[in-house]
Design a protein around this nucleic acid. Sequence first.
DNA 1: CGGTTTATTGATTCAGTTCAAAGCACGTGG
DNA 2: CCACGTGCTTTGAACTGAATCAATAAACCG
Lengths: 198, 198
Amino acid sequence: MRELKAEEALFHQGSDASLVYTVISGSLRLGRLLFDGRRQITGFALPGEFLGIAMDELHDVTAEALEPSRIWCFPRLRFDSLVASIPPLKDSLLERARQDLTAAQQQFIVLGRKTAIERVASFLVYLHRRFERTAGTSLSNITLPMGRADIADYLGLTKETVSRVFSQLRNSRIIRLETLTCIQILNQPALEAVAEGE
Amino acid sequence: MRELKAEEALFHQGSDASLVYTVISGSLRLGRLLFDGRRQITGFALPGEFLGIAMDELHDVTAEALEPSRIWCFPRLRFDSLVASIPPLKDSLLERARQDLTAAQQQFIVLGRKTAIERVASFLVYLHRRFERTAGTSLSNITLPMGRADIADYLGLTKETVSRVFSQLRNSRIIRLETLTCIQILNQPALEAVAEGE
DNA sequence: CGGTTTATTGATTCAGTTCAAAGCACGTGG
DNA sequence: CCACGTGCTTTGAACTGAATCAATAAACCG
C-alpha cells in the first residue's frame, strides 16, 4: 500500500516494473516526456483500475498522482503466478488489452484529425461515460481531477486553447462551470454532436 | 484465401468480424473515417501479420489493400478453439497486444506533440525497423507501399505537407528519393535525431 | 487577508492547411 | 516505340486555427 501526495510520482518511465498496482482512491495521470520537455499524457487512472500490468521489465510511462491517492502494490512475480494459477484471469487481461486498443484507436482520431473544440468535447463525453460506469448511475456533473495543462497534454493542445474552448462551450450553453473543476453538462446531445464534428 | 486488388477492402469498419486474417503477400492500410470524410489511418499490415484478432463481434477499422495482396482467411470460431486448445498461443496473443499498446503510446506522442518533420522522420525510422525485422537483414532502402495521402492520414498531416517534408529531408541529404516510392536513408543518425526532435 | 498558483482573456505570430498550378511517372493504344 | 491521358506528387501563394507571448482575473491556502 502506498499513499501519494498530489503531484507525487508512483513510478517513472524507464524504471524497473517489478510491481503492479491498483488505484484504491484518488487518480493519476500517465504520460511520457520528449527530452525537450514536451509532454503527452497517454491516459488517466481512476479508482479500481490496474497499472503497470502491460509492461515487461520497464515502465513505458510515468505515473503521477493528480490528488492525494491511495495505491495497492503487488509484486509482479506474485501477480504473474496468480494469473498462471487462475486461467480465466488471463482472459480478462486479454479482454482488457483489447478494450485499451479500441480506446487507443479512438484517441488516434482525436489527436490526428479533430479540431480543438472536437477534442475537448470528445474528452468530456469520454470522462462522463467513464465516471458514470464507475458510479453505476447517471450523472449530470463531472469533477475533473486534473488541471487544464493535463487536459491539454492529453489532447495535444495548450492550456490556453483548452481554457478558450471551455469558455466557448459555456457561451454556447452546452456546459456550465460550477467551479473550476466541476462541470455540468447542460446539453449532452449537442456536446456529443460537437465531439463527432457534426 | 482471398486475392485483393489494390484499393480493394478486406473488411469494413462495423462489419461482422467472423473471420480472422493473415497477410500472405502485399500490404494493407487500417483506418477509420469521421462521417465528414476525415480519415485516420491507424496502422499498416505487412506480410506475416494477423488482422481482426483484437475485435469482438464487429471490426473497429476498415482494412484496404495498398497493392495486390493475398490474404489467408480463418473462421474466428476455429481460431478461438485453436487458441483454447494450445494455451501458449494465448500468451503470444497477450504479448502481441502488449506490443501494440506500447506502439500506440509512441503514436500518441507523434500525433499529439511532434512537428511535421518529426512525424515524417519518426515514420521512416519506424517503417525501416519494421522492414528490417521482416527481412532479417540490414536495409538502406525502404519501399513505401502506400501513397503520400496514406502517410498523411497516418501522421495527422496533409499530403502536401508530407511531400514538402520529403523534399526538405532530401535537401538536407538525410534521404534520397530513388523513385516516388523507394527511399534511401543516407544519414540514419540524423534521421533518428530529427525524429526525436533533437 | 496577503501571496501564490492556476485559469482566463487578449494580441500577435507561425506551422501547417487550403487552394491552385505545374511537373512527373506510368500505362495504354495507335 | 513513342504520344497522349490520367492520377499522383511536388511546388507556390494565401489563409487560418492554434500556439505563443503577455496581462489580468479568479481560486486556493496558510
